[in-house]
Amino acid sequence: MGAATAPAATEAAEGGGGRLGDIAFEDRMATVDFRVGERAHIVVDSDVCRSCTTRACVTACPANLFAPTADGGILFNYEQCFECGTCYMVCNGEGALTWTYPDGGQGVVFRQG
């Protein structure tokens, strides 16, 4: 996860410093209850991704589940997924991304949604 911009700090961001003081991405994700199923509910066909020029999923995914690889493919995680659907909505490669709901009872559990 490359988005960690500051060491773990729990203080909310205050004026002036921008990102400074915001929490690390891992800590942000650690606040959410994920019940990880055995089946990956996201599957990416990296062969299609190699011809993709926008790679919108990499930045748009709020859980930061997609990482570009050196060979032009996309590495994906499914464990900490919000199941929002942003990735397949912004994906412009036909058939690159297969996205379903996780099996019943698995996946994200919001307590304060």
């Binding site: 909310a12 205050e14 004026g15 990102r19 915001d22 929490i23 800590d27 606040t31 919001f110 304060q112």
Partner: peptide
Amino acid sequence: EEIIADLKAHPAIAPYLRGATVKEYAAH
């Protein structure tokens, strides 16, 4: 999440949230 960080850092919002800790992050 950077957009949220922008909002939280805005001078009109930041004073409201001083000392607050993240309890849950969510997206939909």
